[in-house]
């Protein structure tokens, strides 16, 4: 009520100002203390507190936006030669088409007079997703030759999961260009769009370039990740026994190597796995069972060649793109 009263007063004074302005036209501004300002800002703050901040707007509805230039810059940024038509198609999601058609119907536009002539990205997305899966599987097989197929599946599943792909796509600026029905673009839509971008790349520059693209942007997400964070193994000891029998190595024999503070709240046990009287691996844990499991995981990591101190994967650029200028300088 009080604010309404103040507003009324504000309107009154405003009216007086207007009259003054009307009487002598040369004066367009009244110089005095703006007593209405405090009430006004107070009211606006209260409104903000009650209603919350306004919903986010898509970047395309804010000033300074040229869609064609943005798409071209996107293609240049990734150092790829996209065909722009395909790339623009890749950004159009079916949900956007539906929402747009409904909006037009709501506005009373004839569907024949202003038909929506846009193709959606379903086909591109499916080809992109299939290609991603097959390429990443091949890449994992080549990088970790001793990893079993379940492990490869786990890694590929992690790399093509919703969160990882959405994270990559958001940091490559796909979100701004994506045409989606909802404004903060949901993860599944952005995943779909990124797969469509990969499909468009495959159609415009071929499978090999797409492979390098996937290696540079998706496979690099594996850096610093642990194998068993990606691939959940419930019973590592069972898997280790299986692996050792496959390789004709004697079965592991867990032994307690070290223990400290067994009667305290922070006990520590080290379990070593011996096979043929040789130490395979050792792992720490708070209980004997946990330590044995950890030791089995360490042994599996060693067998699969996925230890922390392994040789880093090769992410160097393809050989054909070396510029002749650089080679001539290095030969001199």
């Amino acid at each position: 009520m009080a604010s309404g009263y103040i507003l009324n007063r504000g309107a009154l004074t405003l009216g007086i100002h207007c009259q003054r302005v009307c009487r002598n036209i040369s004066v367009t501004q009244v110089r005095e203390k703006k007593r209405w300002m405090r009430a006004y800002t107070y009211l606006m703050e209260k409104k903000l507190k009650l209603e919350g901040p306004p919903p986010p707007k898509p970047r395309s509805q804010l000033p300074n936006w040229d869609y064609h230039a943005e798409v071209q810059a996107f293609s240049n940024r990734l150092h790829e030669n996209f065909s722009l038509e395909l790339l623009k198609t890749a950004f159009i999601n079916p949900c956007y088409l539906q929402a747009e058609q409904e909006r037009r119907r709501g506005l009373g536009v004839d569907s024949e007079a202003a038909a929506l002539v846009l193709k959606d990205n379903i086909q591109l997305s499916s080809t992109g997703a299939a290609l991603t899966k097959s390429f990443l599987t091949d890449w994992c097989r080549a990088s970790f030759p001793s990893l079993p197929s379940e492990g490869v599946e786990g890694i590929v599943g992690h790399l093509t999961s919703l969160t990882v792909v959405a994270h990559v796509a958001r940091n490559l600026g796909v979100e701004d260009l994506t045409m989606s029905a909802e404004c903060p673009v949901p993860d599944d839509v952005i995943h779909h769009t990124f797969m469509a971008v990969i499909g468009a790349l495959e159609k415009s520059s071929g499978v090999e370039r797409t492979g390098y693209f996937l290696r540079d942007f998706l496979a690099t997400q594996l850096i610093g990740k642990d194998l068993f964070d990606i691939w959940t193994v419930v019973n590592p000891m069972g898997l280790l026994v299986e692996e050792l029998t496959k390789r004709n190595i004697a079965l592991p024999e867990p032994r307690l190597i070290r223990a400290a503070g067994a009667s305290t709240v922070l006990p520590l046990y080290f379990v070593g796995l011996y096979s043929d009287k040789k130490l395979l691996a050792q792992g720490p844990g708070e209980t004997l069972v946990a330590a044995e499991e950890e030791a089995a995981r360490v042994a599996l990591r060693k067998i699969y060649g996925y230890t922390e101190n392994r040789r880093p994967s090769d992410f160097s650029p393809p050989q054909q793109h070396q510029q002749p200028l650089i080679t001539s300088v290095s030969s001199n």
Partner: peptide, 18 residues
């Protein structure tokens, strides 16, 4: 760095300037 930038290829991080 953003997205392990530079491990595979370098991506200029500035997308738009007004």
């Amino acid at each position: 760095s953003v997205l392990q930038n530079g491990v595979g290829r370098y991506v200029c991080q500035l997308k738009r300037i007004s």
